[in-house]
Amino acid sequence: MTTQIARMLASKAKDEGRLCYITNCIRYLESRNLSLREYWQAGAERVGGDRVSADAEAVALSLEMLNSVGIRASVDLGSMSVIRKLMDRFKINDYKRLTGAIGSKSIDDLRKVTGDRNAIETFTLLMTKRGKAEMIRAIADKAGCLEDEYEYFRDLYRALDAYGCASSVFVDLSTIREMAYYNDLVFEIFTWGIGLPIGGGGRYDAMMKDFGINTTATGFALSIDLCVRALGGPQGNSNETLKVYYQDGFRDKGIELARRLRGSGKCCTLDAYKGERSGILVGEKAVKIESGEEYEP
């Protein structure tokens, strides 16, 4: 959806703002591809703003969204600008083969791209280690460049720390997004037990310029299908889903309780009370229907 949103913003000459969406997408795939042709995704885009602040906001929001529905996720950061600068530093021209080697952590493929020993050592370090901002320091020391990138990542981690999510964010520079429009930070979001990234995003300033707007942009999208799978399937786990009912005139209080429960990571449903014999009933007070005891979430 990122391309469509960038085009829409360009058509409205909008160079500052925040947008979000939940929609179904349809893509063309070769028949051998194992992915879905139609899928649902939710995303958010930040247009304009300071580079570090906007990137941190996008990463933090993605984790907060997942946390709010009970998915504990982590993020891996990559950087297309780091790869471009290292390509310039080591005079490597074959971007496609290099990113293919990095994306699959294949040192054999890397050796086919360059024979420069220092380049191989630097890219091997980049591909095989995962950590925090000091990862960039180690690569910068090896390559003799990337000082700006190191400062950017340090500042990004300070901002992520302020959002309270720095411990869930790692630097793995073999994180490559397939979409060519990302020109700087890229990131992938994942949770254990799901073999594929459940979301991802990055910075795409260059595409905004291609559409004729001189602004910056960053954003992300989450796969709703994979989030549903991470939560245990479309029906959820009935043993863990709390059923909340409200009496006539107490719908607002019911909604408030449901939001609090979901905000704390619990799954719940909310319906008007029609004589059910189990669950939580919201009236003047919230009570457990089975026992009549007051309910405290």
Binding site: K105, R130, F170, F190, W192, I194, G195, L196, P197
Partner: peptide
């Protein structure tokens, strides 16, 4: 070979 998410979650 390694699953990309396993690499991250079981690093």
């Amino acid at each position: 070979i390694c699953n990309k998410i396993s690499y991250k979650t079981k690093y």
